[in-house]
């Protein structure tokens, strides 16, 4: 089958999401920082929902240890995650405007790199890097919405993973405590729950539903 036209895909999305919400989604611009278990799943959920512009950022390459939970394929091993996920997102949502930046984010480059997007997803794996991004965005870009994830290791109950609204523009998803450094590995199902919380928080912000 030929790939559907932009209009055909938009019409299908509009039918499912409603005209008003789909217009907001298609006009939205979201940055996903870190393309591991959280970020790759968040980006795919947002692309499927018809978010108009995605900015994906990571510096790492696809490793065999990623395949248990991250949205990559064995033939993509060794590729930069930005390139691999760009390919996958382009197949899912061929008319999504995707910007990829293969870069390690730090306090100096974050304000410039994330300037355009109104909503930023923190999807790193290391705790100190999560804190760095969150502090940098909140200190330097108070007009942005920020959706972070913390605590999703292991196979604990799904129901302990929540979305909290810490301040007006800062949302935090996860159970807050399950640390991968405590020896609990990351499992696809539970990482997906946290990623879905983050993606849904983003979609609710886009829809103007700010309460949790």
């Amino acid at each position: 089958m030929p790939i559907p036209t932009r209009e055909e895909i938009y019409a299908a999305l509009e039918e499912r999401h409603g005209r008003e919400l789909q217009k907001k989604l298609s006009e939205a611009s979201v940055a996903v920082c870190g393309l591991g278990g959280l970020g790759s799943n968040i980006a795919i959920a947002l692309a499927r929902a018809g978010v108009g512009r995605l900015h994906i950022l990571d510096f790492d390459i696809v490793d065999i240890s990623n395949l248990n939970r991250q949205q990559y394929f064995p033939e993509q091993l060794g590729m930069y995650k930005t390139d691999a996920l760009y390919d996958t997102l382009s197949r899912i949502a061929p008319y999504c405007d995707i910007q990829k930046d293969c870069v390690k984010l730090d306090e100096n480059n974050i304000p410039g790199l994330l300037e355009k997007e109104s909503i930023i997803c923190e999807a790193f794996d290391k705790a100190d890097q999560k804190a760095m991004l969150v502090n940098c965005v909140l200190e330097n870009m108070p007009e942005k919405y920020l959706v972070a994830g913390s605590g999703m290791a292991g196979i604990g109950s799904s129901n302990t993973i929540t979305t909290k609204r810490i301040t007006k523009r800062f949302y935090l998803c996860g159970d807050g405590t399950s640390d991968v450094e405590d020896g609990m590995g990351l499992v696809a199902s539970r990482v997906l729950i946290c990623a879905a919380h983050q993606a849904n928080a983003v979609i609710r912000i886009i829809a103007g539903k700010y309460e949790i």
Binding site: L38, A123, D125, A127, D128, A153, T177, D179, V191
Partner: peptide
């Protein structure tokens, strides 16, 4: 005051 403590994993 809110103290958000981050843990590893993602």
């Amino acid at each position: 005051m809110e103290v958000v403590r981050f843990v590893g994993g993602g």
